[in-house]
């Protein structure tokens, strides 16, 4: 379960995220949408404890990411916007390293490794050096890294970017399977993906939540594209100004 409450993040004068709140229930898949630069990555970085919020709180699996950061981080799998790979490691060595720093018991690592290599279509490149992998394969390794320790909360920043169609289908069904036991929040620009995978949708624009509802309610009598475009069209002038001011 992820609870975001009144979250604000300022980079100097620029307010990237301003006073947003939303929730993902346990076992839910939440689609996090918004135009470029609307603050999705920033929000996810705060949820995962990488950077502190200027104001507001985040609770992950019941633990405050600021005050009980360590406990919260134990329960998170995170795929950042660009996959966090060590370019001189092989895929296997890298995934083993991640499994260890995520606190997995030594005995559990071989099975988890095999499982995740198969699930993410990495068996063929298991002993290749990550630095020379193609973009799509790097993304797969990034995803494998996020799920290897079977975390109860998954934060995925544009997980299917750069993947081939077959792999996209594979990863989507993987994410769907993870739901139930895992809470997933994923950002994406591919709206059909949201329609297929997510139960709940949060749309942000210029750092503010402009829509938050179950997918079935939102896309009842209109397509998700329409919902998205309408939501970001009603943007408040105030928020846009802060962005422009900072840019000057």
């Amino acid at each position: 379960m992820i609870e975001v409450q009144n979250l604000t993040k300022r980079y100097g004068d620029l307010t990237a995220v301003s006073d947003i709140s939303f929730q993902a229930e346990s076992g839910q898949i939440l689609g996090f949408l918004g135009p470029n630069g609307s603050g999705k990555t920033t929000t996810m970085r705060i949820i995962t404890g990488f950077m502190p919020a200027t104001a507001g709180t985040v609770k992950v699996a019941g633990f405050d990411i600021f005050d009980e950061s360590f406990e919260a981080r134990k329960r998170i799998g995170y795929l950042p916007e660009s996959p966090p790979l060590y370019n001189d490691m092989t895929v296997t060595a890298y995934l083993r390293f991640v499994a260890r720093i995520k606190g997995m018991a030594r005995a559990d690592i071989p099975d988890a490794l095999d499982h995740v290599l198969a699930r993410c279509g990495l068996t063929d490149v298991a002993y290749r050096v990550t630095g020379y992998l193609s973009k799509g394969y790097r993304q797969r390794v990034g995803l494998a890294q996020a799920i290897i320790h079977n975390p109860s909360v998954l934060v995925l920043d544009e997980p299917t970017v750069g993947l081939d169609p077959q792999q996209i289908i594979g990863i989507r069904s993987l994410i769907k399977e993870l739901a139930g036991e895992h809470t997933v929040i994923l950002s994406t620009h591919i709206l059909p993906e949201v329609a297929q995978v997510c139960e709940k949708v949060v749309i942000i624009n210029a750092g503010k939540v402009v829509a938050e509802d179950m997918l079935t309610n939102l896309a009842q009598d209109q397509t998700l594209e329409d919902v998205f475009l309408k939501a970001i069209a009603q943007e408040e002038p105030g928020a846009a100004e802060t962005v422009e001011e900072a840019a000057e």
Partner: peptide, 14 residues
């Protein structure tokens, strides 16, 4: 620079 700092700091490491 390589983004792996994000991995280290979001892992349960002190």
């Amino acid at each position: 620079k390589g983004g792996t700092y994000e991995l280290l700091l979001t892992s349960p490491l002190r």
